[in-house]
Design a protein around this nucleic acid. Structure first.
Lengths: 211, 211
DNA sequence: CGCAACCGGAAGGTTCTCGTCCACATCAGT
DNA sequence: ACTGATGTGGACGAGAACCTTCCGGTTGCG
């Protein structure tokens, strides 16, 4: 990363790289961006040396992982927009799928240094902007459909999603999953246009979230 | 603090102790339970030595802070139950006020060791149980009133609250506050009995959250 | 078969934190 | 005001955790 152009990797090297990325996603999401590099290497089943040859330092690894994640979410956002029958449905799908963003959000929120590494990467920034733009469109469209309440802004939705990324304490991973799903449905119901109480303040935009 | 019976503290010592507690609450909530002791001391305007004389180790400090926090929330839960006209109102107030629990939750969630320190303290456990019992009552009562949707359990509500404790990224503390408040209202609307979509699975109880 | 490319993990060096200790300051009673 | 007890600050030594490099040995590939 940062610079790894032309040279094709040897087959085993390629495999190791993928394992490292997978392990990094897991571990970052689970323990945050400050986990020892050795932990990542261990889970990937490789030595630390291998890790460092592929990614010059922790920051590079973070960037690589964030890129892949944001990319996946952006792809899905576009797919959802194209495939789902209504904007509301697409929005729901996006929010649900966004759990894959969990990682990136954790990275962004937990560690200032990780966040800095990300915001300075133009490619990541571009992906993020793309996601936000898609979200913006979906919110507007869903409101035009009359399903999404009018007094929320894309920023509100983004914030709500980021809340859902929190790991709730539960006695097992399965119930944690269930709880998260139920929470999502509750929130979706809260986002419906129905009666509801008026929200305080003005709709929150993406820009309100800070860059 | 594990043991600090009869001896009355000198006036200035007492003041320092309070400052330490206040600083600890702040810092724990902000940076998590692993912040260097020195950081806490600095914010309290005292030396590390003072901190260590008052609280033999980090664990003792955490326990003390958690006790005070849980106690405050429990008091408010009871006050809300007694003072608010309806159970729903009381529930809303509790959820809103619970932001003061932010700290304790962060402690509990972020660091296994902090969590262990808390669950082993009988007094803290008792406070927690009290809070949960109050929540349980309120949920039941609010459902009897017909305002709270029937398919949620106290565990769902607790989980939702814990979500709200997350610090959302925003360009300023003020907008962060606004966003959190708006999110709360959205969630409350989602909790109303209205039409809404049915939740998957069974209502989540306190016990589902694990001890 | 031979050469790159690649691998694992030991080890050096740096950074960070804890918790103690003690010379000095401050309080409170006479 | 005086004095002993109580309290205070922060330098410091020990120790742990981590990052990153380095190199003998291994493995894919032409």
């Amino acid at each position: 990363m940062t610079a790894e152009a032309g040279t094709r990797l040897r087959a085993d090297a390629r495999r190791n790289r993928d394992q490292i990325m997978a392990a990094a996603k897991e571990v970052f999401a689970e323990l945050g961006p400050d986990v020892p590099m050795e932990e990542i290497a261990r889970r990937a089943g490789v030595g630390v040396g291998t890790l460092y040859r592929r990614f010059p330092d922790r920051e590079a690894l973070i960037r690589a992982v964030a890129q892949e994640n944001f990319g996946a979410v952006l792809d899905d956002a576009r797919a959802a927009t194209a495939e789902e029958p209504t904007a509301w449905d697409a929005l729901v799908r996006l929010m649900r799928r966004s759990r894959d963003l969990r990682l990136s959000v954790r990275l962004a929120v937990l560690s200032p240094s990780a966040w800095a590494a990300m915001r300075d990467d133009p490619q990541i920034r571009q992906l993020r902007d793309g996601i936000m733009a898609a979200l913006d469109d979906l919110v507007r469209a869903a409101q035009a459909e009359g399903v999404l309440r009018d007094d929320v802004g894309p920023g509100d939705v983004a914030a709500l999603v980021s809340l859902l990324l929190r790991r709730v304490p539960a006695d097992s991973d399965a119930t944690a999953e269930l709880i998260a799903e139920r929470a999502l449905v509750v929130i979706l119901d809260g986002l419906r246009a129905d009666p509801g109480s008026p929200l305080p303040g003005r709709p929150v935009t993406i820009r309100d979230l800070g860059d």
